[in-house]
């Protein structure tokens, strides 16, 4: 955050010490997270025998790209990647719209019936019908084998809805009031005043939703029979031989480059979504959004 505080208060020895410790701590934290990840990256370029023989390394002795070649060799992977990007983008927009539209009125404490709806929502955080009943609903809606089945059943995460709602409750009411007095409808207030004010929150939940769809492999497996419509995560699991150890290699002995493949696929499946983060961070850096509103 670029809070332009004068440096005075940071010059005290205690403050300095804190800064030094803080930097050290966070750097340590970053190191602890990044080292195993670098191993994953390095291992994805290493041979099977190197992965087996060296306990931990950050650079492979013999650098190979055959795992990646194998993955990209099959056209399925690229197709699944494109499919996933599209489904994720579309799903994210729908989810964010639905969530924010519903959260806004629920933030209005004077709205009659609000408590009932909130209770209904909170209940679904802890109770769910389960795999088969949900499948049957999706089937009855005729959504099987459509991309809608990957988006609609997850359209609103009740957990996120409640958080967005409470963010809305923290927004200063003065601007909304001004807009109302100017003759804006409630929807107008929401669309023209509240949403633009909520950019960091929108960015945050866009990320959350996007990641959820991106990482979801259960929905495509259950709802999509047409293998040409499969998403990245399904392909990923197929290529890594998620259960190769048990069924495949033991009893049915086909030699998969299991370990290296596992790591390569992690790298490929994670990178695209990682590019999303800087956009979000931009909003964090801006920071002072509500500060622009004079209370």
């Amino acid at each position: 955050m670029s809070l332009r505080r004068p440096p005075g208060e940071y010059r005290s020895p205690g403050s300095r010490l804190f800064d030094i410790l803080n930097v050290a701590l966070l750097l340590g934290l970053a190191l602890v997270t990044v080292l195993p990840l670098l191993y994953v990256l390095a291992a994805s370029f290493a041979t099977e025998s190197e992965i087996a023989s060296r306990p931990f390394f950050l650079w492979p002795r013999r650098f190979i790209t055959s795992t990646y070649e194998y993955i990209f060799e099959t056209g399925t992977f690229v197709r699944a990647l494109i499919t996933t990007i599209c489904v994720t983008a579309a799903g994210m927009v729908i989810q964010v719209l639905l969530t924010f539209t519903m959260a806004y009125p629920l933030a209005k404490r004077y709205l009659p019936g609000r408590a009932l709806v909130l209770n209904l929502v909170i209940f679904t955080i802890v109770f769910s019908g389960g795999l088969i009943p949900t499948y049957l609903v999706v089937r009855d809606l005729g959504l099987l084998d459509t991309y809608w089945a990957l988006i609609l059943p997850l359209a609103i995460n009740p957990f996120y809805l409640i958080i967005v709602k409470s963010f809305f409750q923290e927004l200063p009411q003065t601007l909304e009031e001004a807009a109302r007095i100017d003759g804006c409808s409630e929807f107008g207030v929401f669309w023209r005043i509240v949403l633009p004010l909520s950019k960091p929150i929108i960015a945050t939940f866009s990320l959350f939703y996007a990641v959820a769809i991106w990482n979801d492999y259960m929905s495509p497996l259950l709802y999509i029979d047409d293998t040409r419509k499969w998403t990245l995560q399904v392909i990923v699991r197929q290529l890594t031989g998620a259960d190769a150890e048990n069924a495949l290699s033991r009893l049915d002995s086909v030699l998969f480059p299991v370990e290296g493949m596992k790591f390569a696929v992690v790298v490929i499946a994670t990178l695209p979504i990682l590019f999303f983060y800087p956009f979000l961070q931009k909003h964090f850096a801006k920071g002072v959004l509500i500060g622009s509103v004079k209370e």
Binding site: Y135, L222, D225, D243
Partner: peptide, 19 residues
């Protein structure tokens, strides 16, 4: 042919039986 990933074959078998 509906090809079902081996790891999730059990779940898919059950929803298919239920459907």
């Amino acid at each position: 042919i509906t090809w079902v990933p081996n790891a999730e074959y059990g779940d898919k078998t059950n929803v298919t039986l239920a459907s």
